[in-house]
Design a protein around this nucleic acid. Structure first.
Length: 261
DNA sequence: AATCTGCTCAACCGCTTCGCG
DNA sequence: TCGCGAAGCGGTTGAGCAGAT
């Protein structure tokens, strides 16, 4: 149902995502959070453009995304909100926790558009429906959801999961120390800086960020990412295998940077 | 059984908006 | 204020699937 994978002229992979790619992207984001979509695929070891990664994450991999099975209430709310906002799918999605703008848009074109038209014609016949109610599947539905109620009940609302929260990370000034970012659990993590020099400086040089992220290393035996686990939730990208060696000088340096030793 | 047709949905494309220097 | 790069957004496309013929 998806486009077959292929490579464009720039060597970027396009088309359907493989489970392995999903795994890499999810692992990376769960461990380090979102900081820069354009740079992220490079460090996550993906041959995708940032835009593609962002779309995949937002529409599919994000932990709070629900798939399929729209309830009547959701359908009703979408139709109501579409009356209110028109085709501003992101606004509509912001009011439906777990639903993405893309999915709502698809759902609208696939199912609700015709129903809305039908309702419109029937309502112009009867002129008896209020603005917030209509006939759905034979029975009248009235939706009266306060704008913030759903949003606030969302564990990770679409609004807060947007770029303003996760992907607008700016590299901290070299002498200001690291500023904390939040990972998906709301736990402070040390985000990778998009400025290679900063880390090179503090780690004493090396090609730290140019190495691809090794997703397998961050998964525990249950298949869940072992992200933000120890050390008070602080974590760092560890692209080098030898970083996991307790005797590694890099590990020692890393621990010193974290103030663990 | 084979073919056709419409539905579905993940993904792409291009434009707009936003933030920063 | 302006220009540029990154992210966001909405429209569209492509291909698998299921039901109809």
């Amino acid at each position: 149902m998806v486009r077959a994978p292929f490579y464009d002229k720039n060597g970027m992979k396009k088309g359907a995502w493989s489970p392995e790619e999903d795994h890499k992207l999810r692992s990376y984001i769960e461990k380090f959070g979102l900081w820069n979509w354009r740079e992220l695929p490079k460090y996550a070891g993906l041959e995708r453009c940032g835009k593609s990664c962002r779309l995949r994450w937002m529409n599919y991999l994000r932990p709070d995304v629900k798939h399929g099975n729209y309830t009547e209430e959701e359908d009703a709310l979408i139709m109501k909100l579409h009356q209110e906002y028109g085709n501003r799918w992101s606004m509509i999605a912001a009011r439906l926790p777990g639903r993405t703008d893309n999915e709502i848009k698809n759902h609208w074109h696939a199912r609700l558009k015709t129903r809305a038209k039908r309702n419109q014609t029937s309502s112009t016949d009867s002129q008896s429906e209020s603005a917030h109610s209509w006939e759905g599947e034979g029975e009248s539905m009235v939706i009266d959801t306060p704008p913030n109620m759903i949003l606030e009940s969302s564990r990770l609302s679409p609004t807060t999961s947007s770029s303003t929260e996760f992907s607008s990370f700016s590299p901290p000034p070299i002498d200001s120390g690291y500023t904390s970012n939040l990972n998906l659990s709301g736990v402070a993590v040390e985000p990778p800086s998009s400025s290679t020099e900063i880390y090179e400086d503090q780690r004493g040089g090396g090609d730290f960020w140019s190495e691809p992220f090794v997703a397998d290393n961050v998964y525990n035996q249950d298949g869940y990412p072992s992200s933000s686990l120890g050390r008070g939730g602080f974590d760092m990208p560890l692209p080098y295998d030898h970083f996991y060696d307790d005797d590694s000088p890099d590990l020692l340096l890393y621990q010193m940077m974290q103030g663990w030793v």
